[in-house]
Amino acid sequence: MNVNHVNLEVVSGNASQFPDSGLIEVAFAGKSNVGKSSLINALINRKSLARTSSQPGKTQTINFYNVEEKLYFVDLPGYGYAKVSKKERERWGKFIEEYLHKREQLKHIILLVDIRHEPGKNDIMLYDWMVYNGFEPLVIATKLDKIKRSQIQKHVSVIKKTLGVEDIHNIIPFSATTKQGKDKIWEVLDSLIDPS
């Protein structure tokens, strides 16, 4: 898709604030600091519409980005950040769960993992939940520019095995710095918007 018009339409701290426009939604999930905001910025050709931070646990709301009046990119709070209180983590967990379970407009979930590390138990849990609930998960292996080209296949194989991904094509290595992988991700998104 040619992206010219995007705006952060809704920043919601509870479910009553979710938008009611009926547009399909693509959610971006992953642990804190994995690069969700950087991926969203790259996909919409913006430098900083989605707020990025070197400080994990910064996104505490569910943010809805209206892309060309065709769909929403939904930036979910990152999970698993230790410095946030247990109570706060539980609150986020319930909030995210409520969104994932009840949101009819949610058509696709993109799980982000850091290509340099084996997926953790929260990643595995979310992946299994997505499969169980009938989503076809797309896994984006971020921070591609941080490893050598010769290591890519090995790291992708570890992610495939750890998560139990059946089709290796459902794992796309991506770099926010070089934008490698961006076109492949858009191919998947375009097929959602226009399934013909």
Rank of each mutant, 00 (worst) to 15 (best):
V156S: 02
L144D: 08
N14Q: 12
G164N: 12
K47E: 09
I124Y: 07
I115Q: 05
L138N: 04
E9A: 07
D123V: 01
P137G: 01
L126C: 03
A50N: 03
V3Y: 14
T142H: 02
L39C: 03
L112S: 04
G35I: 10
N45H: 09
H5C: 02
R149K: 13
S85E: 13
I168G: 05
E118V: 04
E98C: 03
H5S: 10
I159E: 04
S157E: 10
A29K: 01
F18S: 03
I124W: 15
L23W: 09
H101A: 15
P119M: 00
R89E: 13
N4I: 11
D194W: 13
A82V: 15
S48Y: 07
L23T: 10
S38Q: 14
T59W: 06
F135E: 01
M1D: 03
I62P: 00
N45D: 10
S53K: 08
I109S: 10
N2S: 10
K58L: 12
R103M: 04
R103K: 14
V11K: 11
S16H: 11
R103H: 03
V11D: 01
S16A: 10
E68G: 02
P137K: 00
N63A: 03
G35S: 06
G57W: 15
L8G: 05
V11R: 04
L144A: 05
V74H: 09
K58Y: 12
I185H: 07
L192H: 12
V113F: 02
L100K: 05
S32M: 12
R116C: 12
T178N: 10
H155E: 03
I193V: 11
A50K: 02
V11M: 08
A141T: 12
F18H: 10
V113C: 12
V139T: 09
W186C: 01
L111R: 12
N4R: 08
Q55V: 11
F95S: 01
D20K: 07
S12F: 03
L126E: 03
N7E: 13
N122I: 02
N66V: 07
K36M: 09
I40M: 05
L138S: 04
K143F: 08
R91E: 15
L8N: 08
T178D: 03
A176C: 14
V188N: 14
T61W: 04
G13E: 14
V6E: 02
N33R: 11
K47F: 07
P19L: 00
D183Y: 02
K179M: 14
L76G: 00
E187G: 14
S38N: 14
G80S: 15
K94Q: 15
F18P: 08
V188L: 15
G13D: 12
K86C: 01
Q60I: 13
H155K: 09
L138C: 09
F174Y: 03
K36C: 01
Q180F: 12
N2H: 13
E187S: 10
Y99R: 11
Y127T: 13
K148C: 06
D114Y: 09
T142K: 05
K179N: 09
K58R: 15
L49A: 05
E98F: 04
P137V: 00
K161T: 13
D167C: 14
G120Y: 04
F64E: 11
E118F: 02
K107F: 07
G134H: 07
G35N: 07
D123H: 11
R46G: 00
P77V: 08
